[in-house]
Design a protein around this nucleic acid. Sequence first.
DNA 1: GAGAAATGGATCGAGGGTGA
DNA 2: TCACCCTCGATCCATTTCTC
Length: 393
Amino acid sequence: MKKKSLLNKLVDKYESSKSFVGKNRQNQSFSIRPEKIFPKYLDDEEVDFFAEVNDSIKDLESNEFISVDWTKGCIAKKISLNVNHLNDVYKYIDRQPRKQTQEWLLSVFDKYQNNACELLQNYFKVQRCRIEENQNVEFFNSNEKDFEDSIRAVDYIQKNTTEILIRNASLALFKDSKRLENIASTIEALMRKYGDYDGCDDILAECNVVRTPTQVLVKGNANICLDTQIIDLSKIEGDIGFSTKSIDDITFVEVLGCRVVTIENLTSFYTYENNNDFVIYLGGFHNAVKREFIKKIYNSNPSKTYMHFGDIDAGGFYILKHLRTKTGVNFLPMKMDIETLQLYKDCVKTLSTEDRKRLEKLLGDNEFKDVIAYMLENDCKLEQENVTCLTQC
DNA sequence: GAGAAATGGATCGAGGGTGA
DNA sequence: TCACCCTCGATCCATTTCTC
């Protein structure tokens, strides 16, 4: 155990050195003082421990794995790795050489490079540079199976265009319904870093890989034609939900009022007094199903006013921007302004460090710069549940 | 042996992951 | 959600190696 600890420490030093990369300009040796690894080595009261460590050192020295500077009192002063016997050292400590791991990683990049999605192409490019610099590959935790499965899953998810349950996606990929959920955190972290998912809480859902089937909730003043049936929402007091399949079957939507309003949070959706509006619950970040539904509405009703009502925080602004980009509909912000912040000043929350960073990123956006500057200056944000929305057309 | 250059170690802060 | 832990990168200082 002591022998392996010692050799592992020396190999760590070697593998993180310029000599390992071949960029050293001077000859190097890789040495360590034994008390750095075994603090009790120089403790006069630990005679047995001292003898045990010395035996281990002598044993490694006789195998030519290390060379040792001994003092006259038989104390090991400096232990140096014998790089001429590295292969034997790796075998002895049962450790895969870093070079071999790097070669394996490069072979995985090569294997997926040609057909990989753009996100992975970018990721591979960065990681190749990191390997050249002898830095660790991001999102690789030494488990080769986890890593390759994650790469396959990211590619699959990026190329997926229709809604699929996460367990079905997992079966399709790995023949194991739970595998995808096990590696989901790594996949999402990779996609967040190398993709465009600012403000998105659920990246998998955004890519149509969902834990439960998407439902779109609507209420208000509109007629919805489902196959041959027309549903008059104005005659329904509450809301109505459509599954993915039902949304496919909607042939057109006739908005009877003059506004279509999307709402970020469920509580606000239920408490929103729609009056003459046609109201849609988005459920945080919207996915392709919701976006297709919105496009359907817009195609049938291009002259209506489209508004989005969300939290007055970075996430809320990101969702609004994303909604516009992905649907091509120019949604206007509803009650996401300084006046609302001032009106509900007793309900505001303070900004976290992360909130500040995300808001500062959005400061360059002319449209929101005033409200964001106000939020940063007054250290405030507002959840939409606090905002009573009694609006008139 | 002294000085210069190269390299490594220690420390700190930021960011991300994990488990309660 | 939060606290804790780990990893990574940047920086500064110490140590090692080389050259004269």
